[in-house]
Simulated scan of single mutants.
Amino acid sequence: MTLQISTDPADIDVDLVHRYLAHESYWCRGLPRAVLEKAIAHSLCFTALRDGHQVGFARVVSDRATFAYLCDVFVLEAARGQGVSKAMMRAIDAHPDLQGLRRMLLATADAHGLYAQHGFEPITRPERFMERYRPEVYSTSS
């Protein structure tokens, strides 16, 4: 079984990604497909393929010069524990458009150990960060 990490948008199974994010993820349940398509179009996406079938996904939103936000990372349950997330993180770390960034952020409820292996730490100065959080936004959009 070969694992490949691709950044080619043609390799994204949008149906699979939408199904996972909208129905299985804890962070964006109810995500409308049109919103996902727009997000994919404006992001650097990493697709994990095992023998040509998508088993994982990650999305990086970035200006590709100073800042990036890593989001929508998932591995299908049948492929977990097989190094897929680590391979995606290695590909993200090595991508030429993501070198020299001053800051990369992410949010996670349960994968702190994985991300710590790639240099992520709790926010150094949380008092400087603010957010506008609207968890209901997908239930009100069309």
Rank of each mutant, 00 (worst) to 15 (best):
Met1Asn: 05
Thr2Glu: 12
Leu3Lys: 00
Leu3Asp: 07
Ile5Met: 04
Ser6Met: 00
Thr7Gly: 10
Asp8Ser: 11
Pro9Asn: 01
Pro9Tyr: 01
Ala10Cys: 02
Ala10Gly: 04
Asp11Met: 07
Asp11Cys: 12
Asp11Phe: 08
Ile12Cys: 05
Ile12Glu: 08
Asp13Pro: 04
Asp15Phe: 00
Leu16Pro: 01
Leu16Gln: 13
His18Asn: 03
Arg19Met: 11
Arg19Asn: 14
Tyr20Gly: 08
Ala22Cys: 14
Ala22His: 12
Ala22Lys: 05
Ala22Leu: 12
Glu24Lys: 08
Ser25Tyr: 00
Ser25Cys: 05
Trp27Gly: 15
Cys28Pro: 15
Cys28Tyr: 02
Arg29Met: 11
Gly30Ala: 10
Pro32Cys: 05
Val35Trp: 14
Ala39His: 07
Ile40Gln: 06
Ile40His: 08
Leu44Cys: 13
Cys45Ile: 09
Cys45Trp: 01
Phe46Ile: 12
Phe46Lys: 07
Thr47Cys: 07
Ala48His: 01
Leu49Trp: 00
Asp51Gly: 08
Asp51Glu: 03
Gly52Pro: 09
Gly52Arg: 11
His53Asp: 08
His53Ile: 06
Gln54Ala: 02
Gln54Phe: 00
Gln54Met: 07
Gln54Gly: 03
Gly56Phe: 02
Gly56Met: 03
Phe57Trp: 05
Arg59Pro: 10
Val60Pro: 05
Val61His: 11
Ser62Trp: 03
Ser62Ile: 01
Arg64Ser: 08
Arg64Met: 09
Ala65Thr: 09
Ala65Trp: 00
Ala65Met: 12
Ala68His: 00
Ala68Leu: 03
Tyr69Glu: 03
Cys71Thr: 15
Cys71His: 14
Cys71Asp: 05
Asp72His: 06
Asp72Lys: 06
Asp72Asn: 12
Val73Pro: 03
Phe74Ala: 13
Leu76Met: 10
Glu77Tyr: 03
Arg80Cys: 14
Gln82Leu: 13
Gly83Gln: 06
Lys86Ile: 08
Lys86His: 10
Ala87Asp: 11
Met88Lys: 05
Met88Gly: 13
Met89Thr: 09
Arg90Pro: 00
Arg90Thr: 14
Arg90Ala: 15
Ala91Tyr: 09
Ala91Arg: 10
Ile92His: 00
Pro96Lys: 00
Pro96Cys: 13
Asp97Ala: 13
Leu98Phe: 08
Leu98Met: 08
Leu98Val: 05
Gln99Val: 05
Gly100Val: 01
Arg102Ile: 01
Arg103Leu: 09
Leu106Thr: 14
Ala107Ile: 01
Ala107Thr: 01
Ala107Asp: 04
Thr108His: 03
Ala109Arg: 04
Asp110Leu: 01
Asp110Phe: 02
Ala111Trp: 00
Ala111Cys: 04
His112Pro: 02
His112Asn: 03
Leu114Trp: 06
Leu114Asp: 11
Tyr115Arg: 08
His118Glu: 12
Gly119Arg: 02
Phe120Gln: 02
Pro122Glu: 10
Pro122His: 13
Pro122Val: 07
Ile123Tyr: 09
Thr124Ser: 09
Thr124Val: 04
Thr124Gln: 04
Glu127Pro: 02
Glu127Ser: 12
Glu127Asn: 15
Glu127Phe: 05
Arg128Leu: 09
Met130Trp: 07
Glu131Arg: 10
Arg132Ser: 11
Arg132Cys: 13
Tyr133Asp: 14
Arg134Thr: 14
Arg134Gln: 15
Glu136Ala: 10
Val137Tyr: 05
Tyr138Asp: 05
Tyr138Asn: 15
Ser139Val: 13
Ser139Ile: 01
Thr140Ile: 11
Thr140Pro: 14
Ser141Gln: 14
Ser142Glu: 15
